[in-house]
């Protein structure tokens, strides 16, 4: 995975609560067997009509938001299905950070495994960003856990929390499985210790 680097971008406003993963990537695109190429299907049913024409008033179809790398949205983003395709679509589309007051658990975890940083900010901060969406530029500084918000020359800092190991994984672009395999002796020891408590399944 690419290490997560500091970057600057304006945000795309997606002003809705409870956006579920069925909307982020509709099921008709879950049938592929690879991990890439999902960006063009991101929010497909909101982005395109049944004839495949772009729906004008959907934010991703507004040219002014093209090439922005941050998605700004509301509470409980990513609820519903566990499909990791949602994270793959977001990454493939070119988004690196999602800002919301809260996220659904599985989606939140999936982001870190795919180089995406989900940031929780307070309702007040999120509201502020929505109100000033066209003026503010955001600089995401993960090591410092800060967003530097620049609004017509003035900047202020919004701090965010991120769990230490998740941060390291993003910053170093680590392969999590490789890390866990280093704990092999602990796993083996666990298996030896517990073989009586939990019999492996019975062969039929």
């Amino acid at each position: 995975m690419e290490p997560f680097r500091r970057f600057k971008s304006k945000a795309i406003p997606l002003d809705m609560v409870n956006i579920d993963t069925d909307q982020i990537i509709p099921k008709q695109f879950l049938k592929l067997v690879h991990k890439t190429g999902y960006g063009k299907y991101l929010f497909y049913d909101w982005r395109f009509s049944s004839e495949g024409k772009p729906i004008e008033d959907f934010v991703l179809n507004n040219v002014k938001y093209n090439n922005r790398q941050i998605l700004l949205t509301r509470d409980n983003f990513g609820s519903g299905s566990s499909r990791e395709h949602a994270a793959w679509a977001i990454r493939d589309y070119g988004l690196k950070t999602i800002i919301a007051p809260s996220f659904a658990d599985i989606f939140f975890n999936n982001c870190f495994k795919n180089g995406i940083l989900p940031i929780r900010l307070s309702q007040r901060e999120v509201e502020y960003l929505f109100q000033n969406i066209d003026n503010v530029e955001l600089e995401i500084n993960l090591p410092a856990q800060e967003i530097i918000v620049t609004d017509s020359g003035n900047s202020k800092i919004m701090h965010f929390e991120v769990e230490e190991s998740k941060k390291r994984i993003l910053l170093d672009g680590l392969d999590e499985i490789g890390i866990t395999l280093r704990y092999h002796p602990y796993i083996t020891e666990y298996e030896n210790r517990n073989s009586t408590k939990l019999p492996s399944y019975q062969k039929s």
Partner: peptide
């Protein structure tokens, strides 16, 4: 509990998961 595909791969390889 439900997991994403990266975690499916992680469990296949290690039979474990990192969880808070």
């Amino acid at each position: 509990f439900g997991i994403g595909t990266s975690e499916v791969e992680h469990v296949l390889a290690t039979q474990c998961l990192w969880i808070e």
